[in-house]
Design a protein around this nucleic acid. Structure first.
Length: 261
DNA sequence: ATGGTAGTTTCACTA
């Protein structure tokens, strides 16, 4: 089973790119974030026509929104109410015996100080709850794949400049610490770094605000696929589809993909 | 220290 995760930054604008992902990589399951569409107007017909007849959505007007598209039947799991808000940042399904989650962690705003920036405080609280939830999932003992835009680049090689990003939201020590705690709480395997060495620079997001994103290559690895430890020996072909950043009308994020035997 | 782009409910907000 091939699983992809992608922050599409508006699913309606990205339908041609979704088609391109399917043509190139043919995932069985696609987890989306930032769909930016209410459930009633989610383009289910177009996506079913691409071969994904099983679709679960959780969207709101204008912001956030997650979805799972699948070739195989889905059973919806309970939505996780992070930070007591119904802001459509999580959706989980059961597919072919595996629990698959699409998660969108708050970006956190610009100022990395929870005392003066509510968005950063929200992000930190969200990550604390991610750790609690991870522990619960671990105790359930089911095979789980937790994917999404976690909005944190944990390793020095997950950003274009570790030194220059230490005070930039997404790579601050407090965020990386909470990221590590959540990962440890679930016993999660980083499915991508499991096969791509930590020495290798690796990004899944490049800002729209660069004159030439590829030349500057100031990226960050914000999008992740975590797997429960029982799946360790069944992961292969992890990849990040860098090319997608150069497609016409791109998202600022690219798909992250892994195969599970 | 600033400003750069993209998407959405746009003259404002989020990323």
């Amino acid at each position: 089973m091939r699983i992809a995760t992608w922050n599409v930054n508006s699913v309606r604008l990205r339908l041609p790119l979704l088609e391109k992902l399917v043509a190139q990589r043919s995932p069985d399951v696609i987890c989306l974030q930032e769909t930016k569409v209410v459930d009633d107007t989610f383009p289910k017909k177009d996506i079913a026509a691409m071969g994904y007849e099983h679709i679960e959505v959780r969207g709101m007007k204008s912001y956030n929104g997650v979805a799972v598209l699948s070739r195989l039947p889905l059973k919806r799991l309970n939505d996780q109410p992070f930070c007591g808000r119904d802001d459509c940042r999580h959706l989980g399904v059961q597919v072919d015996g595996i629990d698959v989650h699409s998660l969108y962690v708050p970006a956190g705003g610009d100022e990395p100080d929870p005392a003066i920036n509510d968005k950063f405080a929200h992000k930190l609280q969200f990550m604390d709850e991610m750790a609690v939830w991870s522990k619960q999932l671990k105790e359930q003992g089911r095979p789980v794949v937790l994917t999404g835009d976690f909005n944190v680049a944990p390793l020095e090689t997950d950003v274009w400049s570790h030194k220059q990003l230490l005070k930039v939201v997404s790579h601050t020590p407090i965020e990386v610490e909470k990221f590590d705690i959540a990962q440890a709480a679930g016993g999660w395997i980083d499915a991508v770094r499991n096969s791509i060495p930590a020495e290798e620079k690796l990004y899944s997001w490049w800002s729209y605000r660069a004159r030439d994103w590829a030349a500057a290559d100031r990226g960050r690895r914000l999008d992740h696929i975590w797997a429960s430890p029982d799946l360790a020996g069944r992961l292969s072909n992890a990849s990040i589809l860098r090319d997608a950043r150069g497609w016409e009308k791109p998202s600022d994020h690219v798909p992250v993909i892994v195969d599970i035997d």
